[in-house]
């Protein structure tokens, strides 16, 4: 028999007892928060697009002078793989493989997240050297408003993963820990989704125009 789905995204399933039912409210609430956050990113994207023109560039360096697609491609791959590894952690939780495999997959995800941030910071420092700084033009302001905001979200995600690993050690897989990992998963995949937008619109879009 198929069990009713209580909320969008992966459900823990009734064999998780209380955690499964607790998840309905908190996961739904987290989806609503993500919708609100998505509006913020959407508006940052819109601002970027309105600035990607000669007026917005104000005679400063353009996308071709500052973007390094090789690095950005590497960032993309690292972040996408981290989404897969988080998915493995979620599955390990759903099918009750114990906290060992969950911790392992979360560790890999954290390493990839930190790797992404390292690559991104490297990219940023190269851009600063190329003169693509926010004080140079409206266009670069909109870039530095959007991409580092995503990076900040990834940083928060990394912090959250670390906290969850500590809490799993202290509290084991208590229901509230499970529902927190469930929400962390949504957050992590959400950041992937935003990055797809950044890769396509911010980098490829600006370079192709």
């Amino acid at each position: 028999m198929k069990h009713p789905i209580l909320h969008p995204g992966m459900n823990l399933g009734p064999h998780h007892g209380q955690a499964h039912y607790d998840a309905e409210r908190v996961t739904f609430g987290f989806w609503v928060f993500l919708m609100s956050d998505l509006i913020i990113f959407g508006l940052m994207f819109a601002t970027y697009v309105t600035m990607a023109n000669p007026t917005g560039l104000a005679g400063g360096p353009g996308p071709k002078d500052a973007y390094d697609l090789t690095n950005v491609y590497a960032q993309t791959m690292v972040l996408l793989v981290s989404s897969v590894t988080f998915g493995m952690a979620s599955l390990a939780m759903r099918f009750e493989r114990g906290s060992g495999p969950i911790t392992l997959w979360l560790c890999i995800t954290l390493a990839l997240g930190l790797g992404f941030l390292t690559l991104e910071l490297l990219d940023f420092s190269n851009m600063v050297e190329a003169g693509a700084v926010p004080s140079r033009s409206g266009f670069w302001s909109s870039f530095w408003g959007l991409v580092p905001l995503h990076g900040l979200h990834v940083f928060v995600g990394c912090l959250w993963i670390s906290i969850m690993m500590i809490q799993m050690r202290i509290f084991g897989l208590a229901p509230v820990i499970k529902t927190r990992i469930l929400r962390l998963g949504l957050f992590w995949h959400f950041l992937d989704l935003i990055w797809i937008g950044i890769f396509t619109i911010v980098y490829l879009g600006a370079l192709s125009s």
Binding site: S135, F139, S141, S142, W144, G145
Partner: peptide, 17 residues
């Protein structure tokens, strides 16, 4: 960001809008 970090989202100069 415009006021604290010298961004140019809404300034008169340097491509602000």
């Amino acid at each position: 960001a415009d006021r604290y970090l010298d961004f140019h989202f809404f300034t008169n100069d340097l491509g602000g809008n």
